[in-house]
Design a binder for these strands. Structure first.
Lengths: 199, 199
DNA sequence: TCATTAAAATGAGCGTGATCATTTTATCTT
DNA sequence: AAGATAAAATGATCACGCTCATTTTAATGA
């Protein structure tokens, strides 16, 4: 029993490592599930016993990193940072963790954390979104902000957040410094909006 | 020769009308290209002689409406509206035209006008984006705005714009009034940002 | 030790969007 | 009117993500 469970984890890891390697080198769309299975040394069908879809498999890789990034943030944050600094730290912590996967972040997040559907067919994406938004809500609450309806702040935030990730994923400026600039603007915009709605 | 060209247009129209009908009733993803071809009375392969992909076919429908909406805007706008009003009029004119297609706008725009890729495999989407952004740039220029880098204002705008379309496409509030509220906030945010960057 | 049985792996097969060699149709030439 | 030529339609076929009936593996109990 114990052996079996460990073996299962090992297989899941083999699949994840194979997918990581191929997505990074060949790209997300150009990697087939048959290739991943072959690289992992299993049958095609077995892959789907572990991950219900190619999308979910890819998102599992990213979800883990985003989650780690959020933990980095919780570890680093201090109580005397202001609202904007808190948000900046959260987002940049996630992005730092995502760096190795930058090449295939786009097509995966586009469908799993889409602006266009609150519920996707990818649980890993849905929970990543929910957890990130909860972290943001906590930050807002800690700073006593938000004078606007929740659906407005959530929609605005998610648009700006995805915009940052999208920009970053194809940012070819040195050290992705343009992404930093965009983050500054986006976060300031959001801060102003929820603290001073009439502006 | 003339007859042939007219016949071609007629076939293209048959395909568009068949697709429109099916996308609206069955949904975008649940409609197969074989169904569309059957409904249009042609072979499956023929469909792809007219539209290189299902995505492009769907986007052709939306691109036409968005383009019409933009023309509506050009017709209605007056020189003494302020910047925010201009933007509001542009976006709401497009949305009005898109109303009949609301049910399948999401999955199509998500991939054809994605935040995550400037160039998609859908020319109709690429040019719709380019033309809309040009209209916005013209509005900005007409009002003598923009004190921030172009890549920042473009990224910010596109995030907010897609956020509005995404929200609208699933907005179940009466008369989509929540969408109007989101538009107000989004546009004000954008206006403030490009006119007074330090805020 | 060897049945029993539940879990896990397997790969043939499905429906999809898309391709392309072939066939059909329509126009032009003589 | 018949032949030549180009354009357009066709549907068998492909590769893909994914499913599922079957086979294989391994833990359990007599």
């Amino acid at each position: 029993m114990r052996i079996t469970k460990e073996a299962k984890k090992k297989t899941a890891q083999k699949i994840l490592r194979a997918a990581e390697k191929l997505f990074t080198s060949v790209g997300y769309k150009d990697t087939t599930t048959r290739q991943i299975a072959e690289q992992a040394g299993i049958a095609t069908g077995t892959l789907f016993n572990y991950f219900p879809s190619k999308e979910t498999l890819a998102m599992s890789l990213l979800a883990e990193e985003i989650s780690q990034g959020r933990e980095d943030y919780f570890r680093r944050r201090s109580d005397d940072e202001d609202f904007s600094e808190d948000l900046f730290l959260l987002i940049s912590s996630e992005i730092r963790r995502l760096k190795p996967y930058r090449k295939f972040v786009g097509p995966v997040l586009e469908s799993t954390m889409s602006l266009f559907s609150k519920e996707t067919s990818c649980p890993a994406g849905d929970s990543t979104r929910a957890e990130h938004l909860q972290a943001v809500r906590d930050i807002i609450h800690n700073h006593g902000y938000s004078k606007i309806p929740d659906y407005i702040s959530t929609s605005l935030y998610w648009s700006l957040y995805l915009g940052i990730l999208a920009f970053w994923s194809t940012d070819e400026s040195r050290n992705q410094e343009e992404t930093l600039a965009l983050m500054d603007y986006s976060i300031n915009v959001f801060t102003q909006t929820i603290s001073n709605p009439t502006l």
